Computed example of a mutant assay.
Amino acid sequence: MRVLGIETSCDETGVALYDTSVNDNQGGLLGDALYSQVAMHAEYGGVVPELASRDHTRKLLPLITQVLDEAGLSRQELDGIAYTAGPGLVGALMVGASTAHGMARALGIPVLGVHHMEGHLLAPMLEDEPPAFPFVALLVSGGHTQLVEVQGLGRYQLLGESVDDAAGEAFDKAAKMLGLAYPGGPQVARLAEQGDPKRFRFPRPMTDRPGLDFSFSGLKTHTLTAIRRLEADGELDQQARADIARAFEEAVADTLVIKCRRALDQTGLKRLVVAGGVSANQRLRERLAQETAKRNARAFYPRGRFCTDNGAMIAYVGAQRLLAGERDAGTMLAIPRWPLETLTVPSKAL
């Protein structure tokens, strides 16, 4: 089954083509393309929804043509289309949904709206050595920080989540405090490489109490307080900024690792999937490698370009659910807020 995947939930336009018949149902990615709007939004210090929607409209159809040409296929050779139905910016979601439904109706093929975070959750399935079910997943991005127990497609139990800012959102806010460009995560990580790890130690929020929920708003406030104190003393030079970035990054990484350790212990599982934009952070990966090694466990990640939003993860999840018989019931979906735990197991689950 050849499925076209479309991702337009926020500031990246992603398109990919996945074929379930290739390589025994694994790694059947025939082509993918991604256009990032980061440069456009950087001027405003964050995503401007109206600009995002307009840019998706301009870029989506050319990217679809590019991916089909890369795979050597025509639109008539598609068997289904999957698109991101949510969560995300409603205008941006509508661009992908309307395009997917229009194409599917013209071609007479099924179409399905996919949950954006389920795409991230299963993105490591696109790798040569995908994780087997069950596993614990850490979904960590600009909009979400969640720990999920995954027993199979659609079988998800939420273990913990952020009660305020997501980790990626906290990175963006810390970057803004430090005078860094958008998007903040990579900028903070780059600056932190020059930081002294011994100068500051920031709190690891909500790690001094039981449970698997996260909170990063207090860490954000602590960071702002440290910056203002240095400013008042006339000591906020470039080295001080790097030292703060290092302390902030280490605090976020340690907090995520502590919660992942608890989740593995609580579930008794030995496989950890880490996905979403923050999963690309090297300090986080180093700490998780150390922690999983202690427990004879293993961490799985999507390849670099699939850590952030992309069409490949949508094509993969859409293909699995379309194979299981799921379809949109004639109405295109755009769901800005859509809890992951409300997803269901397909009636013909593979």
Rank of each mutant, 00 (worst) to 15 (best):
E127G: 15
P131S: 04
T145N: 08
Q146N: 08
H116L: 10
S98F: 07
A123W: 09
L112W: 08
S98H: 13
L112H: 09
A132N: 12
H101N: 14
E129M: 06
A100C: 08
L126I: 08
L139P: 03
H144S: 04
A100W: 05
P110K: 08
G108A: 10
V140P: 07
P124A: 06
E129H: 14
F135S: 10
M117A: 02
H101A: 12
V111F: 03
E118N: 09
L139G: 07
P124K: 10
E127K: 03
P131T: 02
L121E: 06
L112N: 13
M125A: 15
A106C: 02
D128Q: 15
P124Y: 06
F133W: 15
P134D: 13
H101R: 15
I109F: 08
D128N: 14
L138G: 01
P124G: 11
A137T: 08
V111L: 05
H116G: 13
H101M: 12
L121P: 09
P124I: 04
A100V: 07
V136I: 15
A106N: 02
S141P: 11
L139E: 02
I109C: 09
L121A: 07
S98E: 14
G102F: 01
A100S: 10
G142Y: 06
M117R: 01
Q146V: 01
L138F: 00
H115S: 06
A97W: 10
